[in-house]
């Protein structure tokens, strides 16, 4: 790797100040949590932040006190951005009450990466489109085209694409949106709290980025409303092998059940769109209903309404339909 400077931040304010100082000095900068993906991008010389090149300065967030804590206070569970994926898997409150998040974390990569990688890093990792990762000058690298449209688009978006057709790479992101998470962002102007739809951005809004973070802003934590007693949730990830890859399609499903009647449902898809893709039409079918196999099938069909496949990824439509149907039915009938 090229020479760069590592700067250990003690507080979030210091982290932001270090990043600002670097930018003022004309140096490119990146915040780093676990670093498993960032170091790979740097070794591969993939354009991480369009226009800024390889980072000259890494602002290390692992040294910020308390950024890896999970706190549960009354109606809110707050999870620090530096919480490792393994810690999410192991945490009793997350396992028991926010199961979809624990299952999503457990589905990521390998034990080695889960011990290193963090919640914030997983959520803001760059796309894994093979064109982007192999140095093509696409929208994500600051260029002006998407090579998947006329190319190898097996793994690309069936919803929300254009002008870039990447899929959002995070497993945690659909789970967090399904749990109605808010995202706390800290930057030079202080902090702001964003809902999922406000945090993630479609390529039609900003083709270069997957979220609203500026170069000097950090995803500090997420806050989740504590689920009520009838709430159960699950994450189901379909891969082209059993482990150690991204989702072809995934479904994060949260059901608020009253006996065998569903009060409210939230269904968010991964692997099919440039952002975590919520399907309100499918959710609405479940509200106030007893969940039968027939209804689950209808919910699956509603989840793919409006899908627009590219030349080689239409297989994702039946796959999505099936994973939604099965996950909803299994969750509703698990007592």
């Amino acid at each position: 790797m090229k020479a760069f400077t590592n700067q250990n931040a003690r507080t979030l304010d210091e982290a932001v100040a270090l990043a600002q100082q670097a930018l003022r000095d004309g140096r490119s900068v990146s915040f780093v949590g676990g670093g498993t993906d960032l170091l790979q991008l740097m070794k591969d010389k993939v354009v991480n932040r369009p226009g800024s090149g390889d980072p000259d300065v890494l602002v290390n967030l692992k040294t910020v006190e308390g950024l890896d804590e999970v706190t549960s206070s009354g109606q809110v569970v707050t999870i620090g951005g530096l919480t490792t994926l393994e810690a999410l898997v192991e945490h009793p409150v997350i396992r028991d009450r926010l199961t979809v998040l624990a299952e999503a974390a457990e589905s990521v990569a390998t034990p080695q990466i889960r011990h290193t990688g963090t919640l914030a890093g997983n959520v803001v990792q760059r796309p894994w489109c093979w064109y982007y990762r192999n140095g093509f000058p696409c929208y994500k690298a600051g260029g002006n085209r998407c090579f998947s449209i006329a190319g190898e688009n097996q793994l690309h978006a069936i919803f929300g694409g254009g002008p870039s057709y990447i899929v959002h790479p995070s497993d945690l992101a659909p789970a967090l949106v399904a749990l109605d998470a808010t995202f706390r962002v800290v930057g030079p102007e202080g902090e702001r709290t964003l809902s999922g739809p406000d945090f993630f951005v479609l390529p039609s809004q900003d083709a270069e980025h997957e979220n609203v973070l500026a170069d000097d802003e950090v995803l500090a934590s997420v806050a989740l409303p504590a689920p009520g007693d009838g709430v159960r949730s699950a994450y189901h990830k379909i891969m082209d092998r059993e482990a150690w890859t991204h989702a072809l399609v995934s479904a994060a499903v949260v059901l608020d059940m009253d006996g065998d009647v569903c009060r409210e449902a939230r269904i968010v898809l991964g692997g099919v769109a440039p952002v975590p893709w919520r399907v309100p039409g499918a959710e609405a079918l479940l509200a106030g209903q007893r969940v039968t196999p027939e209804l689950a099938r209808e919910v699956g069909a509603a989840a793919v309404a409006g899908a627009r496949p590219l030349s080689k990824n239409a297989y994702k439509i039946p796959l999505t339909r099936g994973v939604v149907e099965r996950t909803v039915l299994a969750l509703a009938t698990s007592a």
Partner: peptide, 13 residues
Amino acid sequence: GEPVYSCSTLAVW
């Protein structure tokens, strides 16, 4: 005590 990829983390960390 935890397994990690030593190629994907820095010595300084």
